[in-house]
Amino acid sequence: MTVHQITMKPKPHKRSNKTRFQKPPAAEEAENQSDYAFKITKTAVSQICQSVGFKFTQHSALETLTHITTLYLQTLARTAVSYSNASNRTQSNIFDIINSLHDMSSVQGFTGGSTLHCNSSGIGLLRSGVLKDIKSFVEFSDEIPFAKPIPRGNPISLRRDSIPLEIDELNSRGLHIPRWLSRFPDESSYKNCGVRWEKRREGGLALWENSDLVSGGDKFQGISRENDEISDGDGGDLAVERGKVRFKIGDAVRAQKGGVFISFL
């Protein structure tokens, strides 16, 4: 592995929130190259490091701290989600976040951590030491906005068969259907089905080759026509007429004697 140890440029005379990176060689960190979120986290983390007082950083150290940050965020979120799911909710609330913060900071310990579970009334959650720490962090640390505004991507369009979010649609379908169920498939796929079959029956018997199973869609039209062409001939007969061949059993020996040998194809 090659070297580069310092990615943050020192700015002794002028402090600014922007962090500049010396461009690393292209061969490095190829796997993260495409990861946009990772890059943004890296910038944010290096901004925090700079605000703490670091002037330089090893490239690998910054990468590691960024990775840990993303893991921290995701673990925090996942723990909160599991707390909310455990209490039969899909949306998380502040108590889930506080609980998950407690879980995350239980390694190094926090004020009131020992009596956390003794308190059956749960008031401890609101008086959480972790939350107080965060509060004082917000109060006493300098606000460092992210270096550049991030353009928001287009909102993801919901798929047609996804869970309906509009209240009108929810009301229009029966109350007996739980709202977390996704939409029904398109009506044409099940309502008109029977009618179509009845029409077919009235039209009389149809060849199996022409039935929906074989030539159901336009896709199979070509194949069915080919089948038709082939079946135009006298079913199973050869295209060119051949002369009749007769065989006489028992005459083969005599024929061989005569110098003529007939072999049947």
Partner: peptide
């Protein structure tokens, strides 16, 4: 990252809380 982990919450303040908590963690480290 929250959406990636299955976290659903319409409240911006909670998103900010998570951001601040993470920022505090990084700053502490």
């Amino acid at each position: 990252y929250l959406a990636k982990s299955g976290f659903q919450c319409p409240d911006v303040r909670l998103v900010r809380l998570v951001a601040v908590a993470t920022q505090k963690f990084v700053a502490d480290v």
